[in-house]
């Protein structure tokens, strides 16, 4: 039935889709390889002699390397903390019956929808009063507000898919709930745990607003650093794009690894 229709409109459409998705990345990478003089040529040039100077300058002279390390520390720590807090909570939501469970679950999920600016205002004042501005731990903690709901949702879903008979058998052998979770359910739930960890990492790594408001120099994140290049008149476009490339590459790799689960994670399971 499809042979009746020519394939070429489909092929053209697919090529357009791929081009539109990929072109900005192509432009980002090529701009990052231009010297300032080439980058400011009007109209822009497509063929030029590439240079890595922007990367060296950004990384080692402007301190982008330190901000990438900060982002990495913060994203990894908040992900680990979300898993430590979220996995047992997910186990309880999937396996135990208790009063207020629905409300609790609702509250966990609602956190996903709250605008960060709502929390950024009070968090800034509190952090300032406690001397916690410009500290890694402040961002690690506040990123829990979006990472914990993600971890709890995905892992609860995963735990529910594990046959209950396995728990039952272990319990008859005298295993405690903690043993059941760690030894029986967790190994089987690893795919969900891994996906939620990837999400948690991506969201934390990508975040700008809290980084902008809650850090200055010591704990400055990479996106906040990229934005701070935007001051003044003669913008260093090559360096800005080099920094952007360094920020984006790790997330793209992670996203491609988790691409099959991406929709499920972004809709918090509404679509599988």
């Amino acid at each position: 039935m499809n042979s009746a229709r020519p394939l070429w409109p489909q092929i053209i459409l697919l090529i357009v889709i791929i081009t539109v998705c990929v072109f900005p990345f192509y432009w980002m990478v090529t701009t990052s390889l231009k010297t300032q003089i080439v980058a400011l040529e009007a109209p822009p040039v497509w063929l030029f002699e590439p240079t890595l100077a922007n990367y060296f300058e950004a990384l080692f002279e402007d301190g982008v390397l330190q901000t990438l390390i900060n982002s990495l520390i913060i994203a990894i720590c908040t992900t680990i903390l979300s898993l430590i807090l979220g996995v047992p909570a997910a186990f309880a939501l999937a396996r135990f019956e208790f009063r207020g469970k629905k409300d609790l679950w609702f509250w966990f999920i609602t956190n996903r929808m709250v605008s960060p600016i709502v929390l950024a205002l009070p968090f800034f004042l509190i952090a300032r009063n406690l001397g916690l501005l410009d500290k890694h731990v402040t961002l690690i903690l506040i990123y829990l507000t979006f990472n914990l709901p993600i971890v709890i949702w995905i892992v609860t879903d995963q735990f529910r898919g594990i046959p209950y008979d396995l728990d039952e058998a272990a319990r008859l052998e005298g295993a405690s709930q903690i043993t059941i979770m760690l030894k029986i359910c967790l190994p089987l739930a690893m795919p969900g745990v891994a996906v939620s960890a990837i999400f948690s990492f991506i969201f934390s790594w990508n975040e700008l607003m809290y980084g902008l408001i809650l850090t200055r120099t010591d704990a400055k994140t990479a996106p906040a650093m990229a934005v701070s290049f935007m001051e003044g008149y003669n913008l260093p476009y090559g360096k800005i794009m080099a920094t952007s490339t360094l920020i984006v590459i790790p997330v793209l790799i992670f996203a491609l690894i988790a691409s099959k689960q991406l929709v499920r994670g972004l809709t918090m399971g509404a679509v599988k």
Binding site: N206, M241, A255
Partner: peptide, 17 residues
């Protein structure tokens, strides 16, 4: 998958360029 995962701040910077 690429656009969805891109750092929002980088999308803005790309827009500038």
């Amino acid at each position: 998958v690429l656009p969805m995962a891109t750092t929002y701040a980088v999308v803005g910077l790309l827009g500038q360029v």
